[in-house]
Design a protein around this nucleic acid. Structure first.
Lengths: 262, 262
DNA sequence: TGGGTGTGTTTAATATGCAAAACATAGCGA
DNA sequence: TCGCTATGTTTTGCATATTAAACACACCCA
């Protein structure tokens, strides 16, 4: 992340640093002390003290069991849920995906493209067996998954080239594209077929079916997907059973967003 | 909410107000303009301008479709879900149940459904008298106790039928259900009332009050219960004293898990 | 016992964030 | 067309937030 310029006349450093405290606490695996926070932010203890003092008073952070250490407080959740609830697509998709989960027995998700990432907005876990690690609020690199390719289908040729040009390629599986050309090829392919069935594209042993959701303008605004371990899917029925159900759900959401036809 | 004192030496006003901007935008139903925000916060436009400027630069808020209006940005989601992922239910529940134990004088427990069993995660023994045999890590068959019926309320109709179909029925007390139909009846009843008060259901002479805990998805993820020997409870006050306290504790835990409302 | 290091907290000089007021622009109705 | 009002933006003197440094306390090891 680009460091905020101190010369920026309109910048409020107290706010900037306070939010960074929250993010650092969010990324931390264990509660942090005041000094931990100061070190992590390369800030004087006295300044960190004031930030922590303010955040604690607002209940955005709270003391952990161990004295003088802090974790995020429940109040940050309200912000997250407020965001989710403001995305009208989540309200529309939630019951449809719950139903899709019950029909198929595997986990269902709705995701959107947010910057370079796939952001999961709605997530219904399979009732039994495998529990996916893609919870609501999770982010994953768009270039590396079938869901990402599906969502990237919304970019036009130029945008896609720009996107592809600045990725940090990392091989997750043998299917991970490792250069712009192969990513573009994948996206193009998905755009034409209108769905992806993946088997271990993002994680070995994990499979998924992904279908785009379109709004009134016809653009791809989200992606419905089924996911689970290979063992949770019946591969012979991928196209005959899982795919049509996912398509029906995606169409239902699309229609609710004003998508015509289809 | 108490207004932050301006005389408070350690307070960082910029942070306080910036977070309030986020909360106001979170509570708003439509995007807000700079002036809207300034009005809502009773703040000068110039100050609101600087806050909005900073938040936008950090991508905690973003411009809505309509120019010069703002909504929450996706980055707030990271905070909310970082909180959820790092708050194990046990850490949240422990102090709350310790307090509940002190208020009621009887043993308090938090349990989850694990396979076909009730698994006790947190356990606070009554300070005096009877000591329950339900320690942390203990398992009991879910079908046979009030706590189990409470937790089974999370299963849907089909799942519950499947569950009920493969139990090895064993009569612990006269109250133990001995066939699928009576188990399903019990679970349905508890789901509707929202609590169970049991007297010797699992063990003769042992009583309990059980209340479900729900997470952000609304599902039942755990169960708070009070338990003790009949001699430890004042039966006339089960509904008037013990139950409300247990419900308050369960609500507190639920809220910390992101359960909205209620 | 005593020095060393770490912690959270307080202070006070100064660097800086703040808001009133001025500015620029846009929209609207008469 | 002209005023009137509301908007986002910029400026600037003043009030105040900030941080280096000092403080108090706890802990550890020699």
């Amino acid at each position: 992340m680009a460091k905020a310029s101190n010369h920026d006349v309109y910048f409020v450093p107290g706010l900037f640093r306070g939010l960074r405290v929250l993010e650092i606490l969010g990324a931390a695996e264990t509660p942090m002390s005041l000094s931990d926070i100061a070190r992590a932010m390369e800030l004087s203890r006295s300044s960190a003290f004031r930030l922590v003092y303010t955040l604690r008073q607002m209940e955005f952070i709270r003391e952990a069991e161990q004295a003088n250490t802090f974790t995020l407080g429940a109040r940050v959740l309200n912000l997250g849920f407020a965001y989710l609830n403001q995305q009208p697509i989540t309200a529309i998709a939630r019951p449809i995906l719950a139903n899709l989960r019950d029909e198929t027995g595997v986990s269902t998700h709705l995701s959107v493209l947010e910057g370079d990432d796939v952001l999961y907005l709605v997530s219904h876990q399979a009732r039994s067996g495998y529990v996916s690690n893609m919870r609501t609020g999770t982010r994953t690199q768009a270039y590396a998954s079938a869901i990402g390719w599906c969502l990237l289908g919304n970019l036009d040729e130029d945008e896609l080239r720009v996107f592809a040009a600045h990725q940090n390629w990392h091989r997750f599986t043998d299917h991970t594209p490792m250069d712009p050309a192969s990513l573009i090829a994948r996206v193009t392919e998905v755009r034409e077929t209108g769905f992806v069935i993946s088997r271990g594209f993002r994680e070995p042993g994990g499979s998924s079916v992904a279908v785009p959701v379109r709004d009134h303008s016809g653009g791809i605004v989200a992606c419905v997907n089924l996911s689970g371990p290979d063992s949770g899917f019946d591969f012979d029925r991928m196209e005959s059973f899982y795919l049509p159900l996912a398509q029906t759900a995606a169409q239902e959401i699309s229609r609710a967003l004003g998508h015509q036809g289809g």
